[in-house]
Amino acid sequence: MPKQYAMIIDLNRCVGCHACAIACRAEWDVPVPNQRNWVKRLGPAQTSKGLSYTYYPGLCNHCKDPACVKVCPADVRSMTFTDKETGKTVTQEVAATWKDPFTGAVLIDKNHCIGCGMCVEACPYGARYLNEKLEKADKCTFCVERLEKGLEPACVQTCLAKARIFGDMNDSNSEVAQYIKKGAKGITSAAVNIGPNVYYYGKERDIELLFNKCAPQKMPQASVGERRNLLARMIKGVLPIA
């Protein structure tokens, strides 16, 4: 079975230190105030299961059905993906962002990205941003570039609490699969259920607060005005547009 990379956030271990967010910023040169990786502090607040003071360490969910991929207006090209382990290849039509068929990571080709920001708008989790300097979309890659060098994701490496566990959820022996089996959940709501692959584990009260405060309640929609702006940006310098 192809891999699906996933991350567990164990809130029983997390102490909310924010190291993950900063390590990511350093690793990928993410400009303030943008973020690929964040920590929001929640509470202390009352829940139906008692008082909770917990955290929302967030990142791209590398969703099963990513809303960001399908809105990309860049030209479609044929791209051949190779499974690093088996050597098997698959060719797919993709725009500037796609979901890798062998790892499940949602990635961007920065050289092909036109910087329109459609994908940024489309993500219900706010996991993408537009790098204003480069005029390119950017997001968490699960550090696949580091994985290729035999390194852990930057946020996992720096986590003193070992609260971030990375692996292949399709491998039933993996620690992430074990966590999912014992109840780790992706953040979803009735309106937003696109198969997130970051899974949260913790006390009932902490999960309740996390979902109440952080689960997105609607899928974003781009307005017509927004689309016009995007278009104006794209063809800026090509045509004189008022």
Partner: peptide
Amino acid sequence: GKAICARGNA
């Protein structure tokens, strides 16, 4: 070990 905190990273 390999871990440092937010301040260390910054």
